[in-house]
């Protein structure tokens, strides 16, 4: 049953991709296809990174409401970029090679995420309210420090940060694509190899130990993968608050299963359909009147509220 639904999702995504690449193109195909192809690859990377990071996070925290974005992972990334611009100065920062910059940010992100969230997840596991509160406080704190630093710096340098503080799909940083693809692929391969262990980790720490898995080790590996994936998606398009929650909730509805071998591809496909299909409709059909992320966040925010109201944590 699940494999049939996955095939249908894949077909639908294929349609969206074809529409996005081919429809409404005027002029030289040799120019249009690579141009749109790059953007398409970026959209796919972001879509899969967000959905996979969310599934991993929900598995290690055993809930269906929290996502890396809600817990402030994206805000942490923006904060790290801001601190770098503040310390180095916008000009120096811009002169760094894009790839070096990105790798540096990602490394800092890894360290910060492990330090902050590693201990929180160990201590507050199972205490959903405490996790939500801590996450909200983290996110607000990160944004407040970011704002503070942005006030202190030169307005010209502020523009450098602003680019990375807002979600944008129309203007994607294409020069990062190569390194982002490599990192995402590595993270996805690691996740896929973990899929059976993730099934066991989802049963809770005691059950995982009983079955011979080390939950602590699994959690740290998952956190590392999440930090890499969030860095990739935030660097490419900026923070997206409710996108992950929306697509993973949809995946739970369309393919209701506890098996990560189904859930991971299902969430990735739905996520890709949301981004590519949404971008296709907005750019080609409606003529780019609204940024896609606004639509996604409104719908995703609604889902978040509904899940909280229904108290359905699992």
């Amino acid at each position: 049953m699940h494999s049939k639904r996955l095939c249908l999702l894949a077909l639908f995504l294929g349609g969206c991709i074809a529409g996005y690449l081919l429809l409404g193109a005027r002029g030289n195909w040799a120019f249009v296809l690579p141009f749109r192809g790059n953007k398409l690859i970026a959209l796919l990377l972001v879509a899969i990174a967000v959905s996979t990071a969310t599934v991993l996070f929900q598995t290690i925290t055993q809930n269906r409401i929290l996502t890396p974005a809600i817990m402030g992972f994206d805000a942490l990334y923006v904060l790290i970029v801001t601190i770098l611009v503040y310390l180095l100065g916008g000009q120096v920062f811009l002169q760094l090679p894009a790839v070096g910059q990105f790798v540096f940010n990602t490394t800092l992100m890894l360290v910060a995420a492990l330090a902050l969230f590693g201990s929180l997840l160990t201590r507050a596991r199972g205490d959903l309210m405490r996790m939500i509160l801590t996450g909200i406080i983290f996110a607000v704190l990160f944004r407040a420090i970011t704002d503070f630093l942005q006030r202190m710096i030169d307005p010209n340098e502020y523009a450098v940060i602003q680019i990375s503080s807002y979600a944008r799909f129309a203007r994607i940083e294409v020069e990062l694509l190569a390194i982002a693809s490599v990192l995402t692929c590595a993270a996805l391969i690691a996740t896929w190899r973990m899929r059976h262990r993730l099934d066991v980790l989802a049963l809770g720490p005691d059950a995982a130990i009983n079955l011979g898995e080390n939950p602590q080790r699994g959690m740290f590996q998952a956190l590392i993968i999440i930090a890499v994936l969030v860095s990739v998606s935030t660097a490419l398009v900026g923070p997206m608050a409710f996108m992950g929650l929306l697509v993973v909730s949809l995946a739970h509805m369309i393919t209701p299963t506890a098996s990560h071998a189904v859930l991971l591809p299902s969430a990735a496909l739905i996520s890709a359909i949301t981004l590519v299909g949404g971008q296709f409709v907005l750019e080609r059909v409606l003529g780019l009147s609204t940024p896609l992320i606004v639509v996604v966040d409104v719908v995703g925010g609604g889902v978040f509220l509904i899940l909280l109201m229904r108290g359905k944590r699992r």
Binding site: Q62, V200, L203, G204, A207, N210, L211, G212, R314
Partner: peptide, 26 residues
């Protein structure tokens, strides 16, 4: 283990199947 409330989606067969995980690792 107390897994009931963390894994409501599992079928009985899937849950019992987890008992074999230490041998087959997935």
């Amino acid at each position: 283990p107390q897994v009931i409330d963390t894994a409501p989606l599992l079928s009985v067969r899937e849950l019992v199947g987890f008992g074999r995980y230490p041998y087959h690792k997935g």
